[in-house]
Amino acid sequence: MIYSIQKRFEDFFLFTAELSLFAMRYFREAFRRPFEINELLRQCYNVGNRSLPLVALTGFIIGLVLTLQTRPTLQEFGAVSWMPSMVSISIVREIGPVIVALICAGRVASGLGAEIGSMRVTEQIDAMEVSGTNPFKYLVVTRITATTLMLPMLVILGDTLGLYGSYIVENTKGDVSFMLFFNQVFDALEYQDIVPATLKTFLFGFAIGLVGTFAGYTCKKGTAGVGRAANSAVVIASLLIFIIDFMAVVITDLFYEL
């Protein structure tokens, strides 16, 4: 019993250390020639455009539901006119980034874990290395960079559609015009809402790419290993997103108090 607990702690610290080393290796290699621009663009397309429908739909529905659910409460206080400000701040600050990041953790991180994991298992990574291409650069760096760059974009689009969904509810239920709604939305928002929220989405994207490629790159032999890589990528990426979110909020708070 004690042994297994100790082992778990060991495993946890070992994992953390390996993940950190992996991240450091990313930073070492990311800024060194040659740059795999084409592969980066391909991955950007994979992460960005391919995730777009899912993110758009989810964002839209979240905005819709959030508005529908809070409407009765606000109505009770006669504060329905506060809806745009409330929805905009909650979506832009928190719900948008986190929901989109979680969706991407599900779609992208698991995909990366499975893809790179199966490449590892079928020796494709070895084949790359032998043929003179640094697989870490070609596979890992491009993918982490792609998720880091594309997640903010997806979040912005998700936020936009979320606000649009909210507007549709407000428009049909409360006769709020497009102009009025978005006037109030931008009235409620300030740079200190947008800037930290956007910055943390870069971190979310980085975490998703890092965990996904790490799980795949260190995949154990066999098809079971691939499954486990995909699974652990999703779980750890989601967890990491919440941890990063928490830290980002704490740091932002600190920063704006000073």
């Binding site: 455009n49 912005i156 300030e190």
Partner: peptide, 21 residues
């Protein structure tokens, strides 16, 4: 298509930044 995605999101961010600004 990737280019369109990047341009659209950048525009949205710029417009939002402008409106808030």
């Amino acid at each position: 298509r990737l280019g369109v995605l990047v341009v659209v999101t950048t525009l949205i961010l710029l417009v939002a930044a402008y409106l808030i600004g």
